[in-house]
Write a protein that binds this DNA or RNA. Structure first.
Length: 667
DNA sequence: CGCCCTCGAGTTCC
DNA sequence: CTCGAGGGCG
């Protein structure tokens, strides 16, 4: 990036950030998520650090916080309310510690700091003032110097004592938050009354604390975690927290005293995974030096006290730049546009690409090449572009146009007819399209198909390019001499490949059917059909009516299968294969301990993989389904189970562990 | 015909 | 994991 480009970007970012800050703080109506906002702020901060000449005191990066609203009394805090600086990695955390130790050594202090790690609650900071043991004022943090007087509203919070046991004059700092279930309840009410919904619990907390009518606040169930005391000169952070507990404040139990930053890291990793299970949002950890006397020695930077730091969790939502849109041709011929992105870290992994699904999706997002896009992980795995930051769109941003021809074979793309409608995807219908061909070969050898273990997608692609693999049957004609000596393939790997090919020569009918890649015939349908007909010969002789008679097979699936079996092109594929392989008849299994029972598996099981668990269930006559419904008998749930677990709980489906499953089998 | 249950297909990184 | 669509039941 040239300096001129950087200057333009910095200006655009500042304008965008100020616009959203205004929407958020002054109007309480955010249109982008906090994380997306943070991501843009980080980009600006990085640019200002890289080009110090572009930095300016008026930049949003130097702003401390929100502005007070006019309709509450303003309050000037006796002690400035700082906020901590952020770190995002263990390295940065260690650098923070090192900086402190260096500073302390310079001051000739040899005490080694210890730490208290607390959860950083996603809420609103409040400042509570007590005079001679009596609660006299509650205020928001505001911009750190001036906040709003919300005393009456704070008084409605049941965990805030109005009198203390001794005549302490002190200020208590806390974080106000609301339970996730309260957000849902209130949003349900608001939906009925057709009022705008709150986007998250923090907005709800902010909105509630700013209610002018404290009766409304009382009904809203605000919670406050207290975490700091000013004005009492206690010796340590631990003492402060203990005193707050004794005085009846709500103090978060999930905190840890740490001798070293290494212990902080352990606590951090523990909470990185566990944070979603709480009924409040957690942004990260706050790490404070336990010894209060060290706080004064370390002092402040321009923005924050040095003795504490916020250790943030990896962002779940970030922004990045869309560099290009490329096209992918799938096994079925569907042509999928894919966004090529400037690499960015989301929820722990570095994302470079994300699917855009089809033209409808591109139009819905109105995404163009060069745009800054918001990205998150759907189901914590697959990256999903969910928004475009329009204010950052460059002038030369180019709209994407779907080509008329297949990017691989240049045949004309068509839409499929689905019922009365057209599909949103464009399809390449050319049977000889090399891209489709390759994808079909990969599918054929895949784990749930023929399972030629040593022929992974990369190897197949290489061999296909070299002309060693031309069609499905050619895989079985490979010889050790063909492979040995190729780039990256020695004698041993050549032997392994040949062995895995020979192992795959015997295959159950259901796997063979699935491996062929017939449209609408997936893993389950292949099993149903194999069980029904038993042998491939009987299936070949079946009429369309006989095929449709199979449970779960209707007109669409039946027609697709029937057509495949009678199409000369496909017939040649099959006869060629039959010379090489041995298709095992499918035994009709009856009975078994789990006969007639339907299972769904979710999460990570302690010892079995998902497929292993599935095999155990099926071998015992049970059925494994992919989604939970009222007909599901058991949900086998492991670690980090997602939406299926909630769904099962709502439907009252019995939930068992892997161990519970093995016990069912033994009976 | 409408609704619920299932299945197929596409998907990314390490 | 999610989405969309096929299948089947009432």
């Amino acid at each position: 990036m040239t300096l001129v480009e950087a200057k333009k970007r910095v200006e655009d970012l500042r304008q965008t950030l100020e616009h959203h800050r205004h929407l958020y703080h002054a109007l309480d109506a955010p249109v982008i998520s906090d994380e997306v906002y943070d991501s843009l702020m980080r980009e600006l901060d990085a640019l200002e650090k890289k080009y110090p000449e572009l930095d300016s005191p008026a930049s949003p990066t130097h702003r401390v916080g929100g502005e007070p609203l006019p309709h509450f009394e303003k309050v000037t805090h006796e002690i400035k309310q700082w906020s901590f600086d952020n770190v995002f990695s263990y390295d940065e955390l260690c650098a923070w510690e090192e900086r402190n130790v260096t500073l302390l050594t310079k001051e000739k202090i040899s005490d080694k700091p210890t730490y208290v790690a607390e959860l950083k609650i996603d809420g609103l900071k409040v400042v509570l003032t007590y005079k001679d043991g009596i609660f006299v004022r509650g205020a928001t943090r505001g911009n750190g110097e001036v906040g709003e007087d919300i005393t009456e509203n704070i008084k409605t919070v049941k965990t805030i004592p109005l009198f203390l046991s001794k005549k302490y004059s002190m200020t208590v700092i806390g974080e106000a938050w609301m339970k996730k279930e309260d957000l849902e309840r209130i949003n349900k009410e608001r939906k009925r009354e057709e009022l705008p919904l709150y986007a998250n619990t923090r907005n709800l907390t902010a909105g509630t604390l700013r209610q002018l009518d404290s009766k409304v606040v009382a009904k809203r169930n605000i919670q406050i975690f207290a975490y700091d005391i000013e004005g009492l000169n206690l010796t340590s952070q631990q003492d402060e927290l203990e005193l707050l507990e004794q005085e009846g404040f709500l103090v978060n139990k999930d905190r840890k005293f740490c001798q070293h930053v290494k212990d902080v890291q352990t606590f951090y990793e523990h909470w990185t995974n566990k944070r979603f299970n709480q009924n409040y949002g957690i942004d990260g950890l706050v790490i404070k030096i336990n010894e209060r006397k060290l706080w004064d020695v370390l002092g402040h930077t321009a923005k924050s006290p040095r003795a504490g730091i916020a250790y943030k969790f990896p962002a779940e939502e970030v922004t990045t730049k869309l560099v290009a849109i490329t096209l992918q041709v799938g096994r079925t011929g569907a042509v999928t546009p894919v966004a090529e992105l400037e690499p960015v870290l989301v929820a722990g992994s570095n994302v470079k690409r994300a699917t855009l699904h089809n033209m409808d999706e591109i139009k819905r997002l109105d995404v163009r090449i060069g745009d800054t896009v918001s990205l998150r992980k759907a189901g914590d795995v697959i990256p999903e572009i969910f928004d475009v930051v329009l204010t950052l769109r460059p002038k030369n941003a180019k709209a994407f146009v779907m080509p008329k021809l297949c990017p691989e074979c240049h045949s004309t793309l068509v839409k499929e007819v689905v019922g009365k409608e057209e599909s949103s995807a464009w399809y390449c219908k050319n049977k000889d399209c090399p891209a489709k061909h390759l994808e079909n070969l990969i599918h054929f050898a895949s784990k749930k198909g023929m399972y030629i273990e040593e022929l992974g997608d990369k190897t197949i692609e290489t061999f296909h390019d070299l002309g060693l693999i031309t069609d499905r049957a050619s895989m079985f004609k490979l010889k050790k001499e063909d492979i040995e000596g190729l780039d990256g393939f020695g004698e041993k790997s050549a032997e392994n490949i040949i062995a895995s090919i020979n192992k795959a020569r015997t295959v159950p009918l259901s796997r063979f059917l699935f491996a062929l890649g017939i449209r609408h015939v997936g893993e389950q349908t292949a099993k149903d059909i194999a069980k029904h007909f038993g042998t491939f010969e009987l299936l070949q002789k079946a009429t369309l009516e006989e095929i449709i008679a199979v449970g779960g097979v209707g007109e669409k699936v039946g027609a697709s299968l029937y057509e495949y079996l009678h199409d000369p092109y496909s017939q040649k594929i099959v006869t060629d294969l039959q010379k090489e392989i041995n298709i095992l008849d499918e035994k009709k299994k009856t009975g078994g301990a789990l006969s007639g029972i339907t299972f769904v598996i979710t999460g990570t099981l302690p010892t079995l993989s998902r497929d292993e668990a599935k095999k155990i269930i099926e071998d015992n006559g049970g059925k494994v389904s992919s989604s939970v419904s009222s007909k599901t008998n058991y949900l086998v749930a492991g670690e980090e189970a997602g939406s299926k677990l909630t769904n099962a709980q709502n439907l009252g489906v019995k939930i068992i562990t892997e161990q519970g499953l093995t016990e069912l089998v033994k009976r």
